[in-house]
Design a protein around this nucleic acid. Structure first.
Lengths: 190, 190, 190, 190
DNA sequence: AATGAATGAGTGTTCATTCAT
DNA sequence: GATGAATGAACACTCATTCAT
């Protein structure tokens, strides 16, 4: 009773690591239970089932990350500042919890279509920030979606390279490089 | 009963579409057989099993795409030209066979670790092109891996946006935009 | 058309060898076809199916062996003579075609219950020879079935030992030993 | 749901009966599960698979039978005594569990080659007992393997006749007859 | 809250058999 | 006669989920 919360967390972390390592479909409930050192049935006291566990892991952290991103972005006035703190937070988040970041990155193709439109969402957020900069005249008008794709691509593909060991430094140490690359892509003033 | 090659192709295309739509693990051999309008057992006359089918689909097309990319890049002397034709081929390939491109994009996390080092590989190719431009002084020296990540990210995330309907124009129509964005990121002359 | 018979024989011998080596159930039609160097479908020109092939192989040779045994036994008047030629023929048959003998021995548990009562049968024959010897007073009366079991056991288990390499001499060279053992078991005069 | 051991036993007995009745290859896991009144999956909680089940059933009982045979044989000094208790135990074992005995008898051709050399083994045991009697001069020297084959054949073929209904009395009631037949075959003193 | 034996629908795969060539 | 691609029922086995303890 006392460690009900701790058990749930242990299951979550064990599942997360396995999902990233082997994929959701290839991870069995037995794998998770063994890694979390609980019985198989225990998982069902905390989650409806494996699918809900995978989804909760995704949705909760995806929205939380988007929320934090938004909070930081709001504190800046100009596009360069907003982009700077957002890129920085992407990098910091990755470096602090690469497994969770990887899960969010790799599981998106399974879950993105299930994200409700009102759920805070890093992709929408970047899109909006760029769109508003175009609307306000801060950025010359153009295809905001295409611009958002490029900006996100710069950051996310760097994370992918880090995951696969092609980039060996911390992502945070690349933060400024990535930010200025994004600004150059947008033809924005630094 | 006569046309062994056509049957194999029908199975491949049916599998490809389902793999992209539902994921490899979520697609059953029965699904594939039904979509290809053959009996389940027929699949095993052409492939060792479901895994080999998924892998062959990946490896063959991944290597072929890398080969074609390389062929085009070799015909240009300067970085801007090389990058231009490569980006263009990414876009053309996507527009001509979005399902296949999606599979290559989405399945990479399952298969990339299985790719042998000597297999032609678009990621390595972009990396090499940039590395050589740095070595030859055409590009100011820097982290070639990070640069490759950004360039690839610009193109691939655009494809992802296209897949998810966030970008509605053809990818080819964005080709020049993407190319110049890549060059700006690399701080290269157009 | 000309080698129709030869093809059937090739299939039979290939099947026989595989049936003995791996068992009937573990041998596939594809195995047989490959070993006989014909296409899978060809087997069905000569046999109704795998089961019929296995049965024909058993029944034909089982009955033929029983017939030959009977023919030889008839030429002798007394029990010792009858037993002698029968044991000798068991041994000769084994040595001439150990694979076929093994099949008859090992497949009996699959097929014995399918043997029709009127089919010539080595087991019945031995039983009858002993029963008649008891009836005629040549052998002191007793349980003819039990006596037949012991006599058959002496011969057949020697064959099993030979198959498994526990006995290394030819079975024929043991023929006299086995015969006199059978007579001693029956308490008969040599 | 509580009694894991009882379930395993129920599965074992159901499998044993079916294996003897229809053969291992012809018995499906569904057959076994239905006969044991458990779900198919339950079998895999207790055994690695069908093959391991068939093997465990064989190996365990084969070794246990050999062990018991050896224990009894050791308590006798002379060959006649040893042979007597061994034959008696063969008969008793058969009468007490004809299904298990049949399995051991019929499955030997599938499994004998898999028996490790150090596993207690009735065939080796009989061979050794006879070999030692020859070495000690208790039995006139000769081919111990051939002698063992004949002795085993007398007993085992009687069991086969009993299985097929050719012998209708209990095997135990034949024990003395079989023992003295064995001794006569060996030309040993009773 | 935790357990883990039991479940059974669903999966990938095999293989005897058919039939157009 | 001979072929071998195609078939599809049947198989061994997996695993998310349930529930008595």
């Amino acid at each position: 009773m006392k460690n009900g919360k701790a058990t749930k967390t242990r299951i979550s972390r064990a599942a997360l690591a396995l999902f990233v390592e082997k994929g959701v479909a290839e991870t069995t409930v037995r794998d998770i239970a063994a890694a979390a050192d609980v019985a198989e049935g225990t998982l069902y006291r905390h989650f409806t089932g494996k699918d809900e566990l995978a989804w909760e892991l995704y949705a909760t952290n995806f929205a939380a990350f988007a929320g934090e991103l938004d909070r930081r972005q709001r504190e800046k006035d100009k596009l360069a500042g907003k982009l700077g703190v957002m890129v920085q937070h992407f990098c910091t988040f990755f470096d602090q919890d690469p497994v969770l970041f990887s899960y969010l990155l790799l599981a998106q193709h399974d879950f993105l279509k299930r994200v409700p439109p009102d759920m805070p969402n890093p992709v929408d957020l970047v899109h909006q920030v760029i769109w508003r900069a175009m609307a306000s005249g801060e950025l010359h008008p153009g295809d905001a979606a295409a611009a958002a794709a490029m900006v996100l691509g710069i950051v996310l593909q760097s994370a992918v390279f880090k995951i696969y060991g092609r980039i060996t430094t911390s992502l945070s140490s690349l933060s400024d490089t990535l930010t200025s690359a994004c600004l150059r892509v947008l033809k924005a003033e630094d």
